[in-house]
C-alpha cells in the first residue's frame, strides 16, 4: 500500500518539474522518470504485460523526444500566456479538480476491485471480467488471460488500434516528407 503512495508522489513531483523547468532536455528526462515510475507501478499493480510494454515504449518515446528537442537553438521560452487568461484557466482547472474529487468519492475504495463491487450490487448483470477469468483458458486455450482478451474476446479493439497506428504513421510520414513544400511553392510543376 505504501509503495503506491511513494511511487505516485514520485511521479507527481517529476511531472511538476517537467512542467515548470525552463530547459527542454530536463523536461524530457523528467518525462522519462514519469514513464519508468509508471512502469514500476504497473508491476506492483500485478500487470506484467503493461509493465513490459510501458518500459520499451518509454525508451522509444524518449528517443523520439530527444530527436525533436536536441539541436534546436531556441528552446528557452519562458513565461506563460496573458495574465488574465492564465488566471481564468487556473480557476477553471481548480473547479474541475474539486468536482472530480467529489466524483471519485463515489467509487469503491482502492483495493476492492470495481468488478467485484459490481457483482455484489443487486440488480446488476454478471461482469464480463469474471467470464474472462473463469472461461478464458477453456474457450481460447491461452494461459495469458490478457492475451486472450486482446486477441480473441475483444479483437475488434486490436483491429481499431492497428488502424489508428497505421493512420498516425501515414500522417507523420506525409508531414515530414520533403517534396510537399516544393509542390506548394511551384504549383505549375
Amino acid at each position: 500500500m505504501a509503495i503506491f503512495y511513494v511511487l505516485l508522489l514520485f511521479i507527481i513531483i517529476a511531472a511538476l518539474i517537467a512542467v515548470e523547468t525552463k530547459n527542454l532536455l530536463s523536461a524530457v528526462i523528467c518525462i522519462g522518470a514519469i514513464g519508468f515510475g509508471a512502469s514500476l507501478m504497473f508491476l506492483f499493480l500485478r500487470a506484467p504485460d503493461i509493465a513490459i510494454t510501458q518500459i520499451v515504449v518509454e525508451v522509444l518515446g524518449l528517443v523520439i523526444l530527444i530527436r525533436a528537442t536536441i539541436a534546436r537553438d531556441l528552446t528557452f521560452i519562458s513565461g506563460d500566456k496573458e495574465f488574465f487568461a492564465t488566471v481564468v484557466s487556473i480557476v477553471i482547472i481548480f473547479v474541475i479538480f474539486l468536482a472530480g474529487i467529489k466524483v471519485f468519492q463515489t467509487l469503491p475504495d482502492f483495493g476492492t476491485s470495481a468488478f467485484t463491487a459490481a457483482a455484489e450490487a443487486p440488480g446488476m448483470p454478471e461482469p464480463a471480467s469474471q467470464t474472462y477469468i473463469s472461461q478464458g483458458l477453456q474457450r481460447t486455450g491461452a494461459a495469458n488471460i490478457v492475451s486472450s482478451v486482446v486477441l480473441d474476446f475483444r479483437a475488434y479493439d486490436t483491429l481499431g488500434e492497428a488502424t489508428v497506428l497505421f493512420t498516425s504513421i501515414i500522417g507523420a510520414t506525409v508531414i515530414l516528407r520533403k517534396k510537399a513544400k516544393k509542390l506548394l511553392e511551384d504549383p505549375d510543376k
Binding site: 506484467p48 504485460d49 509493465a51 513490459i52 510494454t53 520499451v56 515504449v57 525508451v59 522509444l60 486455450g141 491461452a142 494461459a143 495469458n144 490478457v146 492475451s147 486472450s148 486482446v150 486477441l151
Partner: peptide
C-alpha cells in the same frame, strides 16, 4: 505471448528498438 507476459505489442516495440 499467449503463455507468458508479453505479446505482439511489447515484442514489436522490442524488435523496433
Amino acid at each position: 505471448g499467449h503463455l507468458t507476459p508479453g505479446g505482439g505489442f511489447a515484442g514489436g516495440v522490442i524488435l523496433a528498438s
